[in-house]
Amino acid sequence: MRNNVYVYILIMAAVTYLIRLAPLILFRKEIKSIYIKSFLYYVPYVTLAVMTFPAILSATENIWSGLTGFIVSLILAYRGQSLFRVAMLACLSVFLVELII
């Protein structure tokens, strides 16, 4: 390694922090445009759905435990369980399936 690892890390941290900070500083006033407001309203749903699927299927040791965790999460979330319970029971379901398969 020719370059200094710490310089790399500081560059990464600075770039990433600025990306996170810029919109918080630049777009402080409430946006009036209905279109942009609607866009920002939909952003989390699309972003999180895309991040979750299909990645959730390959997150665990095998696809069956991933699929089980996915279905368990869907059912519990649909029934309005808290974040904590959904996450913990999904982990438990993965653990149990992997004991068998």
């Binding site: 989390p44 699309v46 979750t52 665990t60 965790g69 996915f70 979330a77 649909y78 959904v86 996450a87």
Partner: peptide
């Protein structure tokens, strides 16, 4: 391996409840 699913399960717990009874949101997801 079991803990690896926690974050995804959380994402699901975040997006599903508001989509319940909201056909537009459900369709978008």
């Amino acid at each position: 391996s079991a803990l690896s699913i926690a974050l995804y399960a959380m994402f699901i717990a975040v997006i599903i409840p508001p989509a319940k009874g909201d056909r537009i949101l459900a369709g978008i997801i």
